[in-house]
Design a protein around this nucleic acid. Sequence first.
DNA 1: TTGAAAGCGATACCAG
DNA 2: CTGGTATCGCTTTCAA
Lengths: 335, 335
Amino acid sequence: MNKNRIAVTASDVARSAQVSRSAVSRAFTPGASISRERRHHILQVANQLGYRPNALARSLVNSKKGRHSGLVAVVMGEFDNPFQPYFFAQLTQALQAEGRVPMLIMPDQNGQLDDALDRLIAYQVDAAIIAAGSLSPEATEAFLALHIPTVLLGREARQTPVPAILTDNRAVGRLAADYLIQQGCQAPAYIAGRKDGQASQERQQGFLAALHTAGITPAVVLQNTDYSHDAGFASAQTLLQYHPGVDGVFCACDALAMGALAAFRLASIAVPDSVRLIGCDNVPQAESAGVQLTTIAQPVEALVATALQALNQSIRGEVVELSQRLAPAFVLRET
Amino acid sequence: MNKNRIAVTASDVARSAQVSRSAVSRAFTPGASISRERRHHILQVANQLGYRPNALARSLVNSKKGRHSGLVAVVMGEFDNPFQPYFFAQLTQALQAEGRVPMLIMPDQNGQLDDALDRLIAYQVDAAIIAAGSLSPEATEAFLALHIPTVLLGREARQTPVPAILTDNRAVGRLAADYLIQQGCQAPAYIAGRKDGQASQERQQGFLAALHTAGITPAVVLQNTDYSHDAGFASAQTLLQYHPGVDGVFCACDALAMGALAAFRLASIAVPDSVRLIGCDNVPQAESAGVQLTTIAQPVEALVATALQALNQSIRGEVVELSQRLAPAFVLRET
DNA sequence: TTGAAAGCGATACCAG
DNA sequence: CTGGTATCGCTTTCAA
């Protein structure tokens, strides 16, 4: 059964409405010179025939003249940390609300883009949003060499100057420290993420600096190789075994914190009574019954809105501020 | 700073390589009549110039002649259940590996597609994969009316006959029942998802049928309004309060099961010693330290592979089997 | 095997 | 305001 997928074209509409192709085009172009009645009539006929302007053909015309395809590449690497799908969904919906079409590109396990780059060029995307922490620096630079308007989300470029939107991670660390200090912690620990993770590093810096200012010496900093629940679990067990004096724990992300929480519960350590715990991100799961994790929220809505704003500026060829750091927010949860 | 985004065209390459545009096109068309050396030369020049055929223009030409754009619409509604992003990532990578470009479409909160439908037509997608359980029946039918080759993933259409790939959910229920029976449970309970959720219903049917065959009367079936961690938590608390005799619990998905697990732990009920617990999906988190959830795995790889196969058949205009049910697998975890 | 030329569907310029 | 026409980048007959 070969479905009759012959698309309705402007010519079909023109013929049916007894007007020229130009008229049809104008009817679909806001603010074009065409009489009200004519436009109304054409739109009506078009609607009956089920006509939609072919976006491919449209952007073909506009290509050299600097108009746009409506396609935006979203480069996103992983969906295993709960923050990522949450963020991704917000971003996608925002793009969609702007009438843009997100094309998803996932780097492979080595953080390479391979032929995905080719596809970006091939499809003439208007712009790209790179939200993949796992994208290798080389791949990132290769990408930026395409000179497609690009915005980095949650990371910065090492060499090329590109607009980047991030949470103010040092402020995250400071807020976490403030909480633990205010709760009277004397021996706080930091459960870090990847050693080369920019976010984890910055949060650590802010955290340690604030502790230092308050005259508190951190008990220990535990590095991990990822931002997972399992790593948090293992780190908490390490704390219990080797650093039993720890009375406050800040984790580089909520997944780590929820893993740590599981380990504490398993060991019958009361949170927050025996040990204070604070995460970062404010993923939806942090609010779950039986979790109720105190955390530092990333300003997701603001991040998305700012990213789109930067993207639009960049597409229009305007100058965009290079690094924008948005303020996080403390979220207290106690049950 | 207006970046010089003038794309390199086939004419540019032709000029530079001293050949005709046709030759350039042929060089990039597998199996076209062109000499080896000529193609080699052209490809080399093209590479130097950074030329990539414009996919938009290409599919414009091919549009009427039945060729393809390479674009595939992926309709996905929610990312809040951990199974969804996990599945989505697999699907996206598989599409990418086939050289296809996934365009993401998210229905709004009411399960409507609105102008996303228009965009699908406008961009001439080759096909669509609907993996959104939340897509309203009306929107689904409206979508199918477009006669774009479509495959449903994890759900079926009510009216229109469309290929659907699903896990054999009744088998899921039977496997869960087998486990609880084999563990000696006498009063098993089912924690369901949404009342109108096809998967939840079918799992329940398989579960109850297998129990019945074994001569076991289920203690209770608890309905929920979603598939969330919170719902699982609340349901488990209900069990503890009103059905203390329950010695085995099957949950419609892992998120529910992990919520239930949290509730049991909070009440110091040992799992699996005091009560057996089994989920469904086998999300990555089910394997986490401190969780180790016994579950029925959805055959994700097979689902994705089968879906792509069906999609390709559908694009080629071949007849596709309507409902394909893939076998789930029991995953025992005990720590 | 090759190049010239005719479109694909839509837009924008140009006269009228 | 309107219709004709060139053009966008590419593929594909059609002759040579």
